[in-house]
């Protein structure tokens, strides 16, 4: 069955999620990965509709309707205290989409250039420090693998990677587990907890990965290919995301703006078609 890059990445991300955990839905990729996992190999996952609430719902990626999903599906509303308690107890999993990740798995969403005098001020570290201080598994994905996003050293550590400081203060908590990009799958099993290639996506060459990585990544010429998504996984993804919000994350420019407008116009209808029942209120 034919598939696209977003579907390959989402299915690959899904394979990592297993066990009985709260799984956050901050992005369409993260929400769909959680859903695929929950509907295939990991039925015990508790998938949320929004970054903080809506347990026991089926995610429907939209631009603005996460909380409405909780209401129309009568999901379980959670509090921020419950979310952070789940993080502190290592009962929470999340796919984080950082602006930069470096060879030791440090991640940055705060600032390009020095924090005190940023070239580009990003959003601020949000809850990533909580994640890397407490979770025994942390997953990252990057949609545009290039020398600005996969770098030798991040400009600011919003999340702790491997190194002496984390060993001293955090033990193995928050050690980066895996990175999925548009080129392949990477772990941190290299020397000193550095990045290493696990698989390359079909059609991606070792040279391309070397060229598009901001440090000297060891890529041998014999690397296995990422397993393509199954027909069942594709069906789950396409059914759950009829508006194709997942595509938006990979698009840019005019194409992205047009898709954005279409999704925004149609998402209420999609919600009501999928769940015609009235909400709790």
């Amino acid at each position: 069955m034919e598939y696209s890059l977003d579907e390959l990445m989402i299915a690959t991300m899904a394979h990592q999620l297993k066990g009985e955990f709260l799984v956050s839905s901050v992005t369409a990729f993260g929400a769909l990965a959680a859903l695929v996992a929950q509907k295939t190999h990991a039925p015990e996952l508790a998938v949320l509709a929004t970054p903080e609430s809506g347990m026991e719902v089926t995610p429907l990626p939209t631009l603005t309707l996460g909380q409405f999903l909780t209401d129309v599906q009568r999901g379980i509303p959670l509090t921020m205290e419950e979310i952070f308690d789940a993080i502190f107890c290592d009962l929470f999993r999340i796919w984080i989409n950082p602006a930069q990740i470096d060879q030791f798995g440090n991640v940055n969403i705060s600032s390009i250039g020095p924090w005190e005098k940023p070239k580009v001020a990003l959003v601020g570290s949000r809850g990533i420090p909580e994640d890397t201080s407490h979770l025994s598994q942390i997953f990252y994905y990057i949609l545009h693998h290039n020398t600005r996003s996969v770098v030798s050293q991040v400009d600011f550590r919003s999340g702790a990677g491997n190194g002496a400081e984390r060993d001293q203060y955090l033990g193995r908590s928050g050690a980066p587990s895996l990175l999925v990009t548009d080129l392949g799958v990477f772990d941190f099993s290299g020397p000193g907890g550095s990045m290493a290639v696990v698989t390359l996506h079909p059609g991606v060459s070792p040279d391309e990965v070397r060229e598009r990585t901001g440090f000297d990544l060891q890529v041998t010429d014999i690397i296995p290919h990422t397993t393509p998504p199954t027909a069942q996984e594709l069906e789950i993804i396409r059914t759950a995301d009829p508006l194709e919000v997942r595509k938006l994350e990979l698009l840019a420019g005019e194409e992205a703006s047009e898709k954005f407008v279409t999704i925004y116009e149609r998402e209420r209808q999609a919600l009501h078609v999928a769940w015609p029942a009235r909400g709790r209120h």
Binding site: E130, S133, H134, R157, S158, G159, A160, R166, Y169
Partner: peptide, 13 residues
């Protein structure tokens, strides 16, 4: 007290 932020640059800035 918390463990949040250890080994990150948030503590530096």
């Amino acid at each position: 007290p918390t463990r949040s932020g250890l080994a990150t640059d948030v503590l530096k800035v």
